[in-house]
Simulated scan of single mutants.
Amino acid sequence: MICGVDEAGRGPWAGPVTAGAVILDPRKPIEGLTDSKKLTEARREALYPEIKSKALTYGIGWASPGEIDTLNIREATFLAMKRAIAIMGVIPDEILVDGNSLPDDLPCKARAIVKGDLTEPAISAASILAKVARDRAMADLEHRYPGYGFFKHKGYGTQAHSEALQQLGPCGCHRTSFAPVRRALETVA
């Protein structure tokens, strides 16, 4: 049992960082798996329920903006990954993580694979789960914090987000350790 792990949301100024962990069922192939960033939103949304229904198991883990600010984005990403793996409820034979580094204290042997979301189907599936789950969470935050445009930019550092930060100041889902948000806080204070 090979578990693929990937994250979504390391770079945004707002919202959680999200990780997916997936063990695919070789008897139930899924066509079109690749890096979530290479897929349209519609294609990711179509693959999301298929991955969830065909995988042997999966988990989606989160680290909050507060955890990101306390730990730093790298460690918060690793925390979200460990949470996603734990949610699966099984210990895989091996964990494949997209990127060049691994969280500490994983429950089995693990390898980091640069651009693994392009070459390893389980990592691709994890990438899609993490991206869709995070995008949906950011759409929900649009209702809680109107005016920021989270539904469109998902918390990333766009011009529209920068303008909203200047006009409204940071809200409860912003990452205060990120420089643009910190600067906006200093302006408000």
Rank of each mutant, 00 (worst) to 15 (best):
E67F: 06
T57C: 15
P107G: 02
P65K: 03
A164G: 07
E142T: 10
K28A: 14
K115F: 05
D69T: 12
I95F: 01
L79D: 03
S53W: 11
A130F: 02
I23C: 08
A80E: 06
A112E: 02
Q159D: 12
G89A: 11
K115T: 00
E120L: 03
I128F: 06
G32I: 04
E41M: 10
L165C: 05
I91K: 15
V181M: 05
A130C: 05
T70Q: 15
A184G: 00
P170R: 01
R144H: 12
I30V: 10
I85F: 03
I60M: 06
V5S: 01
R44F: 02
S64C: 05
A139N: 03
V188E: 00
I23P: 10
P65H: 07
A133N: 10
H153N: 14
G149P: 02
G155Q: 06
I51V: 14
L24F: 10
V132K: 11
P107R: 01
R10W: 00
Q159K: 15
W13R: 12
P49Y: 09
K109N: 04
R182K: 14
G169D: 08
R134A: 05
L141G: 02
D98W: 05
F78D: 07
I73V: 14
V22W: 04
Y145W: 13
R10Y: 08
L39S: 07
G99S: 12
I68F: 09
R27D: 15
E75G: 00
P26M: 01
G61T: 14
D6P: 01
T158W: 11
F178T: 12
L56N: 04
A110P: 08
H161R: 03
D93R: 00
I30E: 07
G157R: 13
E142K: 08
Q167S: 09
L129R: 10
C171A: 14
F178S: 10
A19E: 06
P180M: 04
I85R: 07
G66S: 14
K37R: 13
A42E: 04
G172I: 07
G11K: 04
A112P: 02
I91M: 12
P121S: 10
P103H: 07
T57V: 15
F78V: 10
T18Y: 12
E163P: 02
I128H: 03
P170K: 02
R43G: 00
Y145D: 10
K82T: 11
L39M: 01
A86F: 04
I51R: 00
